[in-house]
Write a protein that binds this DNA or RNA. Structure first.
Length: 424
RNA sequence: GGAGAAAUGGCAGAGUGGUCGAAUGCACUAGUCUUGAAAACUAGCGAGGGUCACACCUCCGGGGGUUCGAAUCCCUCUUUCUCCGCCA
């Protein structure tokens, strides 16, 4: 959520930014916000004056009662009765304009960083880096869902039986490989200075609002109606919400956390060949990194996170590329996002395995995540997060790229975690 | 799930209808002293809205009510603690 002060003072820059996103009706919605905000403030000061008056009168009444001048007191009481009516009306008007204002603010996405290219869809994302040789596979190389079956390491049908589509069962070396990846990622992140966290997997409404899943992406989360809780779509939600309603000291920065969690997504509206196998699941595992940063340092931190994810892919020896997302593909809450994609050789396509973003103050404003700056004032912090990494597609990439006629090899870096070097 | 108690500033903790945004202690910040540190002393020290700046307004777990006036009384929800039950 953008701050009102920012909107008031930067209307032109905001309109330009929203144009990069192809955000429709930007001008009218911004004008409406500015108008509603002005109304809100005049209502507020009107109300404040009335309250101030009635506070004064009440104090007077108190004094009069104490000195026994009951009649005088009763006279004043009549006046406060009128004031009370007026404040009631004003209070109602104030809360109405506040909620209308909030409804509008919830609709406005974050303003893109100047680096974000204009564009409508993923076609327009900029490839900024590419590394790793695409392996030449043997004759008859298979896509991962076939490999999973052949070596009996992932059972999609069994998942259908137990739960439904998109809930695979990992078995034997497949399960071990999953566990190895999780442990390797967590170790790697810890070594880079991230603190490991195990958060709850269900969150309440306030947390959903804090990171921006609510109100607009409600349909993407599984909802436990009886307790009004949501299954997390990513560890970003519980981890970032640790800092909801928190006032940090400048010396607390940087805050670097990492967490492994399963992630649950309804993926309503997804279909087709691209959702086959591990490509798109309702439940999957992911290791996430989350940082809370001083605004002056957040882009440095973003670069650091990108380099960190890079180093993981280098160690895994997977062919990958980095994209800078265009305005049309950029997430609602993000100012700048880099996507990492791994090349799936047997499918002959790139698979997104990580997304690293700077949200600047957009989440922090909702979260009320602030710090005391050097002038002693409260200022919104910047939040960032990234996947390091999302398991299923890494697994897909590993299975496909590391397949040989004799079996699927395990990358060297993972062997001490798996305890085996080939799946056969 | 049942019975009882409680929720106040970073922490501890006073405050039961007006002079309370709130005593006191600790922590923290600055200064004095010291070669430096500690101790001691002095001062400052919650958040949000609003304003050029003041003024002013709001906030004592959340929401609602009583009252001219609520941290204080009432209702309700949430959470915590103790006891009982069930249980990984």
């Amino acid at each position: 959520m953008l701050t009102l002060a920012f909107i008031r003072e930067n209307k032109d820059a905001i309109l330009k930014g929203l144009a990069i996103r192809n955000f429709a009706n930007a001008e009218s919605i911004i004008d409406e916000v500015i108008e509603k905000d002005a109304l809100r403030r005049t209502t507020q000061s009107e109300l404040d004056n009335k309250l101030s008056e009635s506070n004064k009168l009440s104090k007077e009444i108190g004094k009069l009662f104490q000195s026994g001048e009951v009649q005088k007191a009763n006279l004043i009481k009549e006046k406060t009765g009128q004031l009370k009516e007026q404040t009631k009306v004003l209070t109602e008007r104030l809360s109405n304009s506040e909620s209308e204002l909030n409804d509008l603010l919830y609709q406005i996405p974050n303003i893109p960083n100047p680096l974000v290219p204009k564009g409508n869809s993923e076609e327009d994302n900029e490839t900024i880096f590419e590394e790793g040789a695409i392996p030449k596979l043997h004759e008859g190389a298979l896509p991962h869902w076939e490999l999973a079956k052949k070596y009996d390491i992932i059972d999609f049908e069994l998942g259908n039986k137990i739960t439904g589509a998109g809930f695979p069962v990992y078995k034997g070396k497949g399960a071990k490989l999953q566990r190895a990846l999780i442990t390797y990622f967590l170790d790697k992140n810890s070594d880079a200075g991230y603190t490991e966290i195990q958060p709850p997997l269900l969150i309440n409404e306030a947390s959903g609002f804090g990171t921006g899943q609510l109100p607009d992406k409600e349909g993407q989360m599984y909802h436990v109606g009886i307790d009004n809780l949501y299954l997390i779509p990513t560890a970003e939600v519980p981890i970032t919400n640790i800092y909801r309603d928190v006032l940090l000291k400048e010396s607390d920065f940087p805050i670097c956390n990492t967490a492994y969690t399963p992630c649950f997504r309804r993926e309503a509206g997804s279909y087709g060949a691209h959702v086959r196998g591990l490509n798109r699941l309702h439940q999957f595992d992911k290791v996430e990194i989350v940082r809370i940063e001083h605004p002056d340092k957040s882009y440095e931190a973003l670069d650091g996170m990108v380099n960190h994810v890079k180093s993981i892919l280098q160690e895994l020896e997977l062919p990958y590329r980095i994209l800078r997302l265009c305005g049309g593909d950029l997430g609602f809450t993000s100012a700048l996002t880099y996507d990492f994609e791994v090349f799936s050789t047997a499918q002959d396509r790139w698979l997104e395995i990580s997304s690293v973003s700077n949200f600047e103050t957009f989440q922090a404003n909702r979260l009320k995540l602030r710090f005391k700056n050097s002038e002693g004032k409260s200022q919104l912090a910047h939040t960032l997060n990234g996947s390091s990494l999302a398991l299923p597609r890494v697994l897909a990439g590993l299975l496909e790229n590391y397949q040989t006629e004799n079996g699927i090899k395990i990358p060297k870096v993972l062997q001490k975690y798996t305890g085996f070097d080939i799946i056969e």
